[in-house]
Write a protein that binds this DNA or RNA. Sequence first.
DNA 1: CTCCATCGTTTACATACGTAATCGACTACG
DNA 2: CGTAGTCGATTACGTATGTAAACGATGGAG
Lengths: 133, 133
Amino acid sequence: MSDKSGEGAGEQPERISEAEHTVMEALWQRSPLTAQEVCEEVCGPRGWSLATVKTLLSRLVVKQAVGTEPDGKRFLYTPRIARSDYVGTESRRLVDRLFGGRAAPLFAHLAQSEALTEDDITEIEALLRELKS
Amino acid sequence: MSDKSGEGAGEQPERISEAEHTVMEALWQRSPLTAQEVCEEVCGPRGWSLATVKTLLSRLVVKQAVGTEPDGKRFLYTPRIARSDYVGTESRRLVDRLFGGRAAPLFAHLAQSEALTEDDITEIEALLRELKS
DNA sequence: CTCCATCGTTTACATACGTAATCGACTACG
DNA sequence: CGTAGTCGATTACGTATGTAAACGATGGAG
């Protein structure tokens, strides 16, 4: 089988960098967007120029993390990977790397470092109850 | 105040890369170690050469993440940052970046993606009970 | 039809990272 | 005393990342 560069199904997605992730967040929030619109969302907070956003968008297109759709002269950009997938992968990576794949130690750490608010605790209790249903 | 490059207390620690982290884990496991010994721990699993470990160690020394102590001809390397600090920082970064700083959504994600084992759940329940004590 | 504002694309460049070979100093063996 | 092994330090080099300017096409204003 020519797995040359076709689209098969077995492409493990390329890593998305932190700057790129910022752009993804904008697209997950609302899409499709033009480069201009993405910039309006993120350039301010990050102190970026439009050029930077354009670069990041191209790289994300190459990585197949966002897709384009022509709209007259310009493009509309849309995420091609779900936020939940990204978040899941990243979370898993962290848990694997730092806690030997076990979630409990991560939880313990968050608890100890006071990263858990009252609300978090209440919510987690609710989730636990659901899990045991 | 001269915050020039002295040692004050206000140095936010430089990022430790993934490869460097592998070396840190070896040192957290047991220390002090020689470069040789670190290599014995990690070169196999990662397919690294001793040279690579040496490079990573130097970079970690520059980043002040590990300290050295002369031992005759060679050095003994020791972590200068606690694993729990590193783990805490990294966890926080992830939670901030992906979950708006809230731990509950992270937890929900782990739960949904089946990243939680029975044991995890039991342990977390125990932790929760402790927190509410 | 001409000119300008915009697009996306290409090129740029500094720093970080992964991975390692090489080099100068020193020590231990013969 | 000379030589080989070992150590940390220096240098190397390709790719990734952050950040952006330059370029060529093109569509709309006049």
